[in-house]
Computed example of a mutant assay.
Amino acid sequence: MSDSLGDGCGNPTDVQVSLYKRWAQGGLALSIIGEVQGSPHFAEKPGNLVLNSSADLEGFRALAVAGRADNANLWIQLGHAGAMADGPISSPKGPSALDLPGLKCAELTLDEILAIPAEFARTAVLAKEVGFGGVEIHAAHGFLLNQFLSPLFNKRTDAYGGSLENRMRLLLEVVDAVREAVGPQYPVGIKLNATDQLEGGFQQDEALKVIAALDDKAIDLIDISGGTYFPGAPSSSDRAGTGPYFVEFAQRARTKTKIPLMVTGGFKTFDQAEAAVSEGQADIVGLARALVVDPDLPTKWQEGRDKHPLFPRFSAPPEGGVTAWYTMQITQIASGGAQLRADELRDVIEVYEVRDRKRHAIWKEHFGIR
């Protein structure tokens, strides 16, 4: 998940270190820190981390150590928001120029595209050097690599647009660059959408072809997710009904790859998670909001307790409001605070937005963005 706990300068904070130690102590096998950027120019939020040669590497080392508590593991997610970069702190660019309600971006030049694999690789090398257990390449949720895969966002007519083979070219180049940079033994995963759940977007049959192409690459884990943060788009939970969202797709993916599969999205009970593994749909179950509701859930499930955790119910939440609530509840976990209530949603959203505005100013000052 994107914890949004960076200091506004792209560096880890003490409370962020506490968060990943707390989750590790709760019994999970692996945490993945959402959206760690290689540069400050295409961040998803001002709470993102930026891991490059100018970063506070000692702070990152402390974070890596915390995430290894109690034999857990901590990976970073290699991110680039592209067209979905946060407007107040960036000049969004994607595969193609867009001018849509809520989303406006310029087109990346060919030279800018050719530089992207090396940027991902540099960040991966630093992740390895400071002690993280692995990296996950983010190619889902509407961010840059997913934008290239999607015919809805990618209208290019060069080698990076048009056919699916061309649209997946950048993703495969990033995979190759990262693997070459970190060596053969360091864990490298990829987060991939089963579908964008947008008309005209990246669909399941195309995703299966991408998975088949990845099967020839040195990838250690494919994390299947879906949906997009495109403004106005319904979330996966709005579209997919009850229960885990992507297990049926994972069954189809099994026929295309020997790479271990992780399925993330909609797992709310022990029975759902156990069934996905025992029935061969997933090798690993990804939990997001369930771990925000209860950071001790893995230990409890191992002990046969609390198999049906309670989730908050919100009345007519505004767009992005539920994500804001869960993000601020992550802060509560990290700081040892009390559980937020669902009826506090409006106040929580205000606190969330004020925090981001403050960090927008810090980010722009620190990175010299005007």
Rank of each mutant, 00 (worst) to 15 (best):
G321F: 14
L287S: 03
F270T: 13
E319M: 03
K300P: 11
S315Q: 09
P295K: 01
R305H: 10
A288F: 14
L287G: 03
Y326H: 10
V277C: 03
P260G: 06
F314G: 00
E274R: 11
V285M: 03
L287W: 11
V292Y: 08
T257L: 07
T299M: 08
E248N: 15
R254W: 15
G243W: 00
T255D: 00
V263E: 12
A253C: 00
K300H: 11
A324G: 15
F249D: 15
P244S: 10
D306Y: 10
R254C: 11
A250P: 05
G321E: 13
G243R: 00
P317S: 00
K307N: 09
V247L: 06
R313W: 14
D294I: 15
M262A: 06
F270A: 14
L261F: 12
P309N: 02
Q272K: 07
T255L: 07
M262Y: 12
K300D: 14
V277L: 05
T269W: 00
L291P: 04
V292C: 09
L291E: 05
E248Y: 01
E248D: 15
Q302F: 08
G265N: 06
V293A: 04
V322F: 15
G280D: 11
F270C: 06
K258Q: 14
F270Q: 09
D306N: 08
G320S: 11
D294T: 15
V292R: 01
A276R: 01
V277A: 04
L287Y: 06
S315D: 13
P312W: 09
A275N: 04
A253N: 08
F267C: 00
G304F: 01
W325N: 00
V292F: 12
V263K: 11
H308E: 14
G304Q: 03
Q281K: 15
V293G: 00
G320D: 03
W325V: 03
Q281R: 14
R313A: 10
E274S: 01
